Amino acid sequence: MTAAMPLARRRVAAWGWPLIALRLTAMLALLAASLALYYLFAIFTAHNPVPRLFLRGVGAIAGLRIRTSGPRPARRTFFLANHVTWLDILAIAGRTGSAFVAHDGLAQIGPLRWLCELNDTVFVARHERRSVAAQIEKVRIALADTGALTIFPEGTCSDGTGTLPFKSSLLSAIEGDSDIPVQPVWLDYGAETRKVAWVGEEPGLDNALGILARWRPVDLTIHFLPPLPREDRADRKRMAAAARMAIEAARAG
């Protein structure tokens, strides 16, 4: 599949703004309460449960309604997921407690970087080949520290009707490590996929406001597919291809 064409710019109807205001107020209240709990729990444990609960709560406030299918993930798992919208992060983190690998562009936004770091996000510069070795080492450290880590190997959002080619460079972090399950994840928004997908040149704020203005919930099924067998983990490129094929097969099935 090739990259999707830009979508028409979303416009928020007049009746959507009160709902946006209500949801943003609820999110800010949740953030304030969560920060207090986060720093309290940080005194007692290195595996803070608050980011997971916060992201799950933000998803619920945004209208996200989640069901899951497939084998229950192990606590220490490397997830390879398709990427449709920013809701993906809320959904996976809320269900698994996973940290994420994110493009370093997010790191330039101070408050967002701070929130991401509370959930142990690893920032990488995908287009700087000279720093690939350092990025791989960051991923290894994150896996050791957090247990579960999610990568969106497409490198960007797709329109959800197919998957873009999977980039494999960061999978070098788990080459030869058979102790960590590598589990493909298919995020399926069903009939609402095109309405929530963040693709093309659409500004992120437009996408976020369009979703927050919805009165109908956003239904998402997280399909946890079987972890890759040993023969599909021979090298990073084979891992990437096998994970993409597994997601495509589940979509077609």
Rank of each mutant, 00 (worst) to 15 (best):
A62G: 02
E128Q: 15
R244C: 02
W198R: 00
A91W: 00
M1K: 09
K195L: 13
W15P: 00
V12W: 07
P51W: 09
F123E: 07
L143Y: 00
R251Q: 02
N207S: 15
F41W: 15
G63R: 13
I61Y: 06
E192D: 15
R76D: 09
F224Y: 14
L87T: 05
S168M: 00
C157T: 15
R216H: 13
P73W: 05
F78A: 01
T121I: 03
A197G: 06
R11W: 07
A148Q: 05
E231R: 12
G59R: 04
D159E: 07
F54D: 01
E154R: 08
I151S: 03
L225T: 13
R11I: 07
A234Q: 14
P6E: 02
R230K: 11
A144V: 07
W86K: 07
E154T: 00
A4Y: 00
S169K: 10
T25H: 05
K167G: 03
P153N: 11
R75Y: 06
G155R: 11
I141V: 12
L164C: 05
N82H: 04
L170D: 01
W186K: 06
G160Y: 09
L170W: 00
R67P: 00
A242P: 12
R23F: 09
V84N: 01
R194E: 15
L205V: 14
W17G: 08
K138C: 09
L187W: 03
A93Q: 08
R23E: 06
S98E: 02
A133N: 11
R230I: 15
G70M: 06
V122Q: 10
F123M: 10
C116P: 01
F79Y: 11
R130F: 10
I222A: 12
V218W: 08
P51Q: 01
C157G: 05
R233G: 10
G16I: 03
R238I: 08
G105F: 12
M5L: 13
T2H: 06
D104W: 15
G190T: 01
D104E: 14
E248L: 14
P226F: 15
I211R: 01
I151P: 04
R67I: 00
